[in-house]
Design a protein around this nucleic acid. Structure first.
Lengths: 356, 356
DNA sequence: TGCATTTAGTAACGCGCGTTACCTGCGGGA
DNA sequence: TCCCGCAGGTAACGCGCGTTACTAAATGCA
């Protein structure tokens, strides 16, 4: 498909915007004067009178600056780009929200480019490369990469041309700064909450044990138990698929394995979807939440956690905050701060609802 | 990998971008020749030899076009803008995905600007106006407005300066084209499915009766019943808050009102969240789904519908398709098609799972 | 009065690119 | 021989703006 614009400039010609030149003519001054006033130059000497005359002209003509031309002349675009699979798999969409809000505050524009990358390792980087390339063509001053779940990733080589920050993922090559949730602290706070409610025998419904989320959260759980002088009973840790069905099955195993007196009185589900399944398993057995079994989740997926009955107490992933921090970090880097491979850990707050 | 864009001299590339002038010098031709080759001009006469020489130079230097400069010179940006509250309330995030994928196919870039507008009517249009303004400063060639739920909206006046299309909402002033779900057909298909499964006494858990979604879906339900020679029993229609709790209570009302033989054998829940609550009400009464009571939802909120047990049969809102259609409509408008206030209705497909 | 500042503004250049007008050779027909 | 036409380019302009030099008048100061 070639460009379908015919030589005649059909559409573009229709709409010619008001330029500085027009404003200048209308105000009876030079274009330079207009530029000075609009950019609020400090050591420009423009009398108060012409200044208002120019501002009036701007109002009357409805002048609107041309961001592209400005970027070209000033050699800075005020744009950041974010490459993300989140558009495809919207689980962590709050990252975008956080980043965009922060960018808006900082008078920057965030260009969002989709990356359909299903797996981090495979050579399916076509679209991701293309997205990065497209963003660089727009002359973004910084790049963000955001993943739907915490993991290591490889970024396209061309990302090295501008400051780059990873969000909810980290550089598998260990060269770029990143912002990730503090899974361990999250696991700790979850189990602390259960301990505080008097539970000492706690079942854990685990994710795939190799992913960073599972490793961190479980370690945090161990730490919390250790502080209370307890140990994590490996028999009470059951892994399953990260779905409601997986959670259901894992919960059944844990609940049916013991006579009532040895049965755990609380379940720590490493994500909310599995907690959703665990609810079913518990209710099926005629047990109540939190009376007989307390449940605590992880992720704070609103649609689940806030709508389960009883509402699910869970640990939130700080997506929005990570997004904002990403932009702030980019601000620092573009301002000249040296690039390091630091990992910023962001707190995962406990959200009390009614299941503990 | 074979494409060695950066390995040459990444540092130099960062400091000052490679321009056409550099490519021209490297290839020993004029800048014009480079421009002609890169834009694939048809009636330009460039020998095959210099053409390849230029392309080689592009590769070797890692030249990347400057989108802003190109837009400035050619007076077309290839950008569309989308103003949306979806970033804030990600329920309908698939609209963005659909729009972005389509834009990508059409070699256009979609700029996403957030609008924090909580209510459609209030004068809280500050942020929305600012977003529109910002997009126009980028010289977008068209605008999309996307809402999280189907309703009438007012768009900022400046939106009239470029072609504008509304998605999942419609112009309260009746002047702009819009793309909305065919709620009525969706309601029809849901009830048809229940009828086909043999249900004739169907309870309806309704939304706020005045919103377009409720009006349309209910009307569709009536139509389907009429075709089967049945009438909608108004006693069986219960409204509630659009939440799981609301659905729970409404379901309780319906289920407890009648002796078993008069009890409806199916529930049509006008959204999935309410269906989620209805599940609880049904299970609490020792009834099974779909054995004793069939349930059908609306919206296809994946996190709910795909994870409820049994999985929820529901009618999907065609967000992705609406997004894509929005971009396609914009393509037509920017290509010169006259602007009308047409409402395009998009089908809501039935998703069979296990609750009917 | 004489000279140096300061005030108030303007002319002109260039950012990177698309585009139009032009220029140069060369082969062929009359 | 002359002229025409065409392949194969190039010079030059302008898109809208930031920015640096420069100018011309008003003011300060001895």
């Amino acid at each position: 498909m070639a460009k379908s614009t015919t030589p005649g400039n059909p559409v573009a010609a229709r709409q010619r915007g008001v330029t500085m030149k027009d404003v200048a003519k209308h105000a009876g001054v030079s274009r330079t004067a207009v530029s000075f006033v609009l950019s609020n130059r400090e050591n420009a000497s423009i009398s108060e009178e012409t200044r208002t005359r120019i501002n009036d002209a701007v109002q009357e003509l409805g002048y609107r600056p041309n961001a592209g031309a400005r970027a070209l002349a000033s050699r800075r675009s005020d744009w950041y780009g974010i490459v993300t699979e989140i558009v495809t798999a919207p689980f962590a969409v709050d990252i975008i929200k956080g980043a965009q809000d922060q960018a808006w505050l900082d008078r920057r524009f965030l260009l969002i480019a989709p990356s359909d990358q299903a797996d981090a390792v495979g050579p399916n980087q076509g679209l991701e490369d293309a997205a990065t390339e497209k963003l660089l063509e727009q002359r973004v001053e910084g790049l963000l990469y955001a993943a739907t779940f915490h993991r290591g990733v490889h970024v396209p080589a061309s990302a090295n041309e501008v400051p780059t920050v990873l969000i909810n993922c980290f550089d598998a090559d260990g060269k770029l700064p990143s912002i990730v949730p503090d899974e361990r602290a999250g696991g700790r706070v979850a189990v602390e909450r259960l301990l505080q409610a008097g539970h000492t025998r706690i079942g854990v419904i685990n994710l795939d044990p190799v992913i960073p989320a599972a490793v961190g959260r479980l370690e945090g759980a161990r730490e919390a138990l250790a502080v209370a002088g307890l140990e994590l009973d490996q028999e009470l840790v059951v892994s399953g698929y990260a779905t409601a069905d997986g959670g259901y099955e894992a919960a059944c195993q844990i609940l049916d394995r013991y006579p009532q007196k040895d049965r755990p009185t609380a379940l720590f589900c490493l994500n909310d979807r599995m907690a959703m399944g665990a609810y079913d398993a518990i209710k099926e057995r005629g047990l109540t939440i939190p009376g007989d079994i307390a449940v605590i989740g992880f992720d704070n997926q609103e649609l689940i956690a806030a709508y389960l009955r009883p509402k699910l107490t869970t640990v939130a992933l700080p997506f929005e905050r990570m997004g904002a921090l990403g932009v702030q970090t980019l601000n620092a880097l573009t301002a000249g701060q040296p690039i390091t491979a630091d990992q910023q850990l962001v707190d995962c707050p406990l959200l009390e609802r009614s299941s503990v």
